[in-house]
Design a binder for these strands. Structure first.
Lengths: 340, 340
DNA sequence: CTGAAAGCGCTTACAG
DNA sequence: CTGAAAGCGCTTACAG
């Protein structure tokens, strides 16, 4: 029997509605739901039955307001269309979802200012913790989070200054090692194709430079950098320019697999033999890399694990723990295939 | 001068803190922020300055609790690793973000029960509206939303019964037309490769069957259905089986581009000429389709627009409007390329 | 244009 | 094991 018969929408059932139905106080219902051991079994069963019958769903806002725990974590990533971050998100979700945390996904579009705006906006949700991509956030934002007691973990990169909590791997070292691999195979005129030019791409470029400089093969004119988002088509176009300007180039390290797949496509269309005439290496080792023709040499990055471990670390911080170390280096793996 | 000097975290500034600083009441601050015209310019400026200085961020929980508008929309999609839904999400975001809505993304993993669980859990956020994928939700869930006055819009499919608000296109008709295209090209033994077997794939299959039956070419043994998630590798494997079991098959319609790309790869590896020996068609027209070798015939689906229009429709419903029609058919386009 | 009162739905101490 | 009191930070009417 409804207490009030609205013609359209009726308001949602509250704790009091459940309490009234069972004949106990609201607080007992709250306990039955949140700390079942504190309530007698008999009552608990009655309450659960009433909850079910009324379709009662706790109101998060009320809970958050009074308990000052929102059970919410804000996650800021640069892109949703990049598999890398989707995999990271999956790892985060794996950890946080079972613990009852709601994840707020913020897409920064690789824009530092938008990231800051989003972070500020997310403060209105009083998140219990924050997961950030990279380490380029301004110190003011970090201080603000610290003042509010909101822990933050940075993903993908490491922090040499050891000031922030970071879970990732050395982008720089990964770039160095894959370039070193090309050198070891005998290639000397090795180009770099970079798109988007976010901090991680620039770190891979740094590694590329280090390897070539150490080998005495560094040639700045072989660096092709384009700030726009990477697409397969961009790889095709960059290859055209490269062949025109530097036909003697014998290998290309692409900052990601999309670009590399484009290079492979371009080579196929124009009859360039891979790796005989041109070796190609990508980065991230997405699904397509192993199925490309020829199969694509790449760097396997632990993005699922980055998400998983970052969320785990954050979980500890949110529970007030002090972790043993601030940096978690998850490494990477070279995947050497047919294209090199 | 902080009122209380906590050693660690200090609590966030409240409306009262801002009000106290300026010397007005909290409600005036609230108005300065939410309905600026109702406050004198002088006061408004002072208040905004104080807000800035204190780093005040409104508490959403309090606002939601008292206003019974959460400015939150729950979006349930089957997968985050499928570009289709990422594009849809982008369209949704384009509409809802500027209006100040927070989007809660729920990944149902193509699981009806998980979808229902998520939807129930999201009720605790008191969403102002809900965006769902497909139309397979149980009537009970719809009734529950209706009772709570929460509008819902379904994406990707249409609803022949016209009971629900839907923005999408006819999956069935798209499957029929692409199959019809293959028939028109002269292919007769046309196989269907299906993965995941979610409702939309099954509708495409229906369309495939209709086209073949109408042409008198339907052969059930040419349907290859695998409930597991589609991967490029699955396309390769399915092709192997097909060639073994039905070497006379002259064309394949794949339920999505990943599978089709796998078929293309398999053909390349085993020397099957496309389209001379085997024509291939995919679905969705992802970026890779236009770059495949040969280029892949596919069906261009309006997923960004589905998100955009679904969000727009929901926006209207949340504001109490009654839209002219419940179904919005956004159509699709055949992209005929080298593989057929 | 500004404010005092009331209350949204919960949980946190504090009692018993 | 159960409950009465207080209050989280806001906004909604209602006054003036």
């Amino acid at each position: 029997m409804p207490r009030k018969a609205n013609q359209n929408a009726s308001r949602a059932a509250t704790l009091h509605d459940v309490a009234g139905k069972v004949g106990v106080s609201a607080i007992t219902v709250s306990r039955a739901l949140n700390s079942p051991d504190l309530v007698s079994e008999k009552l608990r069963e009655q309450i659960l039955a009433a909850v079910d019958e009324l379709g009662y769903v706790p109101n998060r806002s009320a809970r958050t307001l009074v308990s000052s725990r929102s059970h919410t974590v804000a996650v800021l990533i640069p892109s949703l269309s990049n598999t890398v971050f989707i995999d990271t998100l999956a790892g985060i979700n794996e950890v946080l979802d079972p613990k009852g945390y709601q994840i707020l996904i913020g897409n920064t579009a690789y824009d530092d200012e938008k990231e800051e705006r989003l972070l500020r906006a997310y403060l209105s949700h009083a998140p219990d913790g924050v997961l950030l991509t990279g380490t380029r956030q301004r110190p003011e934002m970090r201080q603000r989070l610290a003042r509010l007691g909101i822990p933050a973990v940075h993903m993908m990169e490491l922090d040499p200054s050891n000031e922030r909590f970071c879970v990732g791997f050395s982008q720089d070292e990964a770039g160095r090692q894959i370039t070193r691999h090309l050198l070891d195979r005998g290639y000397k005129r090795i180009a770099f194709f970079g798109a988007r030019l976010d901090p991680r791409v620039m770190q891979r470029l740094d590694g590329y430079r280090k390897a070539l400089q150490a080998a005495g093969c560094y040639a700045p004119e072989l660096e092709y950098l384009n700030p726009r988002p990477s697409r397969i088509g961009m790889g095709v176009e960059m290859l055209e320019v490269l062949r025109q300007e530097h036909p003697d180039c014998d290998a290309v390290f692409c900052c990601n697999d999309d670009l590399a797949l484009g290079v492979l496509t371009g080579c196929h269309r124009t009859g360039i033999k891979v790796p005989e005439q041109l070796a190609v290496a990508g980065f991230n080792d997405l699904e397509g890399a192993a199925w490309a023709m020829p199969t694509l040499t790449s760097v396997r990055t632990p993005r699922y694990k980055v998400g998983f471990e970052a969320a785990s670390l954050l979980l500890g911080l949110m529970e007030g723990q002090t972790p043993a170390q601030k940096q978690l280096d998850l490494g990477f793996e070279l995947r050497l295939r047919g294209s090199s």
